[in-house]
Design a protein around this nucleic acid. Structure first.
Length: 414
RNA sequence: GCGACCGUAGCUCAGCUGGUUAGAGCAUCGGUUUGUGGUACCGAGGGUCGCGGGUUCAAGUCCCGUCGGUCGCCCCA
């Protein structure tokens, strides 16, 4: 095997088709985000640890054992972001962006979670992220969902994916429902898996979507949230579903869809596929009206979602690799210099072209062909003397002479 | 943190119940073609068989450990 430093577990070196897929996902997101007038935001890759600890919830696995936290040289505890939402809310507060509310924000980039890598799961992975901060209108939830739906359509993966939708109600609803669930599961303690007994202490809602067959009877017979919804919460959810219907976005109600993170309220959703093994969630989010308050800010309503770029990239059709239109093939030193000038001219004219750093004609032609280049521009002493280049169409094999001054135009014309 | 499977050239893999100098395809480089690619043919370079220990006359092949990979559980995008 190779020696030298190795890639850190759970990180990736991405090149070739994989990189093209990644780029295609990001490009689609940037395009769609503009259509919905979301502005781009950039935030730090690391934050004070408390930003995540206070917002995400001390009891979640993310905070308790999956964060990359470290003391900096000054002794402060910093953490590599495990998600975008908390950092964006911190920025909203510390930069005084309340004055711009409601704010529609989008970003993408690396996030970090210390987990055991598996299919579609990495320690450094990448997310798309969209948030609306400062609006308590159900229309905000709807817009975010329609945006997500359009993104998946533009990526061509809507067929394998369904939008699962639920409401967690407002704070009062959630409290009442949670109490009822605890009571229900306490009564079925004997039937539950060890994992779920654990969840009962830490996050009882999670028992509802347990994969363990032993938990299913108790989970399926558990009280549903609808009975506990306050009138306001019920109205809110009705407005969201009506909006989705109006926008023509397909959705299915999933009463056992809950969120792992403490800050969610009202709308919760996941776009789920069966094409990625155990990692079925492709895009997920919801409303988190309590988060900014938990960071020490004023009560501020907000909604958002995040999607794993790697997971999306695995699902899309392979994109056409970008290939240059032409390759320069100089023969000899004089031609090499002339070709350098020609290449610069073509590129300034907006024509993508390539020129190998060295090699004989055979090598250069083979390289151009392997790269999928359409035209080889051959420059030798004969051509130079005539002020022309030999242009070879590598697809048809036909070859013709073009005056150097007309090169760019000739290539565009063909 | 737990479980299962896997770890042989740059890549994908073969190597039968342990037995002389470990193979193939692709890729790379060179040649058939000293100014013409994509096809074909010939040739070359490249591996302490993840690492460490053990069993054996003998280990890529068996055993233990360790590291890494893959998939699943937990959790989550």
């Amino acid at each position: 095997m190779s020696k030298g430093p190795q890639r850190i577990r759970g990180t990736q070196d991405i090149w070739g088709e994989e990189a093209d897929r990644f780029q295609a996902v990001v490009a689609a997101f940037e395009r769609v985000r503009r259509l919905y007038a979301f502005s781009r935001i950039e935030i730090p890759v690391f934050e004070a640890t408390e930003v995540f600890a206070r917002s995400i919830g001390e009891t979640t696995d993310i905070v308790s054992k999956e964060m990359y936290s470290f003391p900096d040289r000054g002794g402060d505890s910093l953490t590599l972001r495990p998600e975008f939402t908390a950092g964006i809310c911190r920025a909203y507060l510390s930069e005084g962006w309340q004055q711009h509310a409601p704010l529609k924000l989008a970003t993408h980039g690396p996030v970090f979670r210390y987990e055991r890598p598996q299919k579609g799961r990495f320690r450094q992975f990448h997310q798309l992220d969209a948030e609306i901060i400062g609006s308590d209108a159900p229309a905000a939830d709807v817009e975010l969902l329609v945006l997500a739906d359009q993104l998946l359509h533009e990526l061509g993966i809507q067929d394998g994916v369904t939008l699962n939708l639920n409401t967690l109600g407002d704070a009062a609803t959630r409290e009442a429902w949670r109490a009822a669930l605890v009571e229900h599961f306490e009564a079925h303690r004997a039937d539950l898996s060890e994992d779920s007994l654990n969840r009962l202490e830490k996050n009882p809602l999670r028992i509802l979507d347990s994969k363990d067959p032993r938990d299913r009877p108790a989970a399926d017979s558990a009280p549903v949230i609808d009975a506990f919804l306050t009138a306001e919460a019920a109205d809110f959810f009705a407005a969201v579903t009506a909006g989705l219907d109006a926008a023509g976005v397909a959705w299915t109600r999933n009463g056992s869809l809950v969120r792992g993170l403490d800050y969610y309220r009202h709308t919760a959703f996941e776009f789920i596929t069966d094409r990625l093994g155990a990692q079925g969630t492709v895009l997920a989010g919801g409303r988190y009206d309590g988060l900014i308050e938990s960071l020490g800010g004023p009560p501020t309503p907000a909604v958002g979602w995040a999607a794993g770029i790697e997971r999306l990239a695995m699902m899309i059709a392979a994109p056409e690799p970008a290939r240059p239109q032409a390759a320069l093939v100089p023969l000899g030193e004089a031609a090499e210099a002339a070709a350098t000038g020609l290449a610069a001219g073509l590129r300034r004219a907006g024509i993508a072209c390539d020129m190998a750093f060295k090699g004989n004609m055979k090598r250069r032609l083979a390289k151009a062909d392997a790269a999928g280049v359409r035209f080889a521009i051959i420059l030798g002493d004969d051509e130079l003397a005539a002020g022309e280049a030999a242009v070879k169409d590598l697809r048809s094999g036909e070859q013709f002479r073009v005056a150097l001054a007309d090169l760019a135009g000739a290539l565009v014309a063909r």
